[in-house]
């Protein structure tokens, strides 16, 4: 049989992250040896390090977590190629130190943070969120980070700040996928200020209790669990508070298909496919997609009175 029902997988068959990474390192080592070059031995050096002092949070979903291996080998991260396995194969060239994140625009205290200072800015929490891709698949992922609100409060947004724009790294040397013009680089995403301040919106630096792997958006990314995955910008270098609604990369690429809001909504189809169901990675049967990805109780009030078919 080609497809195994999840129940049929013994717990002993699931590779723990440490062993998986061990194997991966071994194979990378072999690959590097074979190539006769160390290739800087991949800046992956940080990934795999345990993050200290991580607290569990009430936002811990009681659903089976997607295995580490699937979360780190099945990615959409066009900066490293458009194939699902491209990011895992190519993201080794990303250097996550030194790294800074500039926060600017409509704020009283603009500041450029060093990534290591950001890691100590607020207590790190583990949050187990659903992740729903606009393509129709989903995962359950234990992220580590702190609410974006913690960061935004410290820079004191002015009265003019209505939106937040996130800008990802633009460096084709580190991100080989950027040599192709498949999207306008750098990758830009945006949220309304109240969405950005929502307690569910997470600045994320870790996965499964460890430093975020490069292919998942290291060293720092956004996670907005009630929106389609592409709204959660990766490898962020700049956060701007702005007056006007930013134009995100996917909206620029195809405004009819990818709107600014892009809230998970089973009733509003993508023009080319249905969004009513999703395939949870690791499961055989499709499951129903939930309104706001199951976070309606927490976020529905943000959109009260809005026509979600119009503001898709």
């Amino acid at each position: 049989m080609l497809i195994r029902h999840p129940d049929a997988i013994l717990p002993s068959e699931i590779t723990p992250p440490e062993i998986y990474r061990e194997r991966r390192r071994f194979m990378q080592g072999m690959g590097a040896l074979a190539a006769g070059t160390a290739l800087g031995t991949l800046d992956d050096a940080h990934a795999g390090i345990k993050l200290a002092g991580v607290r569990t949070s009430p936002y811990t979903l009681d659903e089976a977590r997607t295995p580490f291996k699937d979360i780190t080998t099945y990615n959409n991260f066009y900066e490293f190629g458009t194939g699902k396995s491209d990011p895992a194969e190519n993201a080794g060239s990303l250097r996550t130190r030194p790294w800074t994140v500039a926060i600017e625009g409509e704020v009283r205290k603009p500041k450029t943070w060093d990534i290591d200072a950001l890691l100590r800015l607020a207590p790190l929490e583990e949050r187990v969120y659903r992740m729903r891709c606009v393509e129709g698949w989903s995962m359950v992922i234990p992220w580590v980070g702190f609410p974006l609100a913690e960061l935004l409060r410290r820079v004191e947004p002015t009265g003019k700040a209505r939106y937040v724009e996130f800008v990802s790294l633009n460096d084709p040397k580190q991100m080989p996928g950027q040599r192709s013009r498949v999207l306008d680089w750098p990758y830009v995403e945006g949220l309304r200020l109240d969405e950005a301040m929502h307690p569910l919106t997470l600045m994320t630096m870790g996965l499964y209790g460890e430093v975020l792997p490069n292919q998942n958006g290291a060293p720092i990314r956004l996670v907005v669990p009630w929106k389609y995955g592409f709204k959660s910008a990766k490898s962020i270098v700049k956060i701007r508070l702005v007056e006007k609604q930013p134009v995100s990369s996917w909206t620029r690429a195809n405004p009819d298909e990818y709107g600014f809001y892009s809230n998970v909504n089973p009733q509003v189809d993508h023009p080319r496919w249905s969004q009513a169901k999703e395939r949870r990675i690791g499961e055989f049967f499709k499951r129903d997609t939930l309104m706001f990805n199951g976070y309606a109780n927490q976020v529905a009030q943000l959109y009260r009175g809005m026509d979600l078919k119009k503001y898709y």
Partner: peptide, 19 residues
């Protein structure tokens, strides 16, 4: 190839999409 990959778990995170 598909049968061999299926037997060895080589169809990736989303086997149905792969097939």
């Amino acid at each position: 190839r598909l049968i061999a990959l299926g037997g060895s778990g080589g169809l990736g995170a989303n086997p149905i999409e792969f097939i």
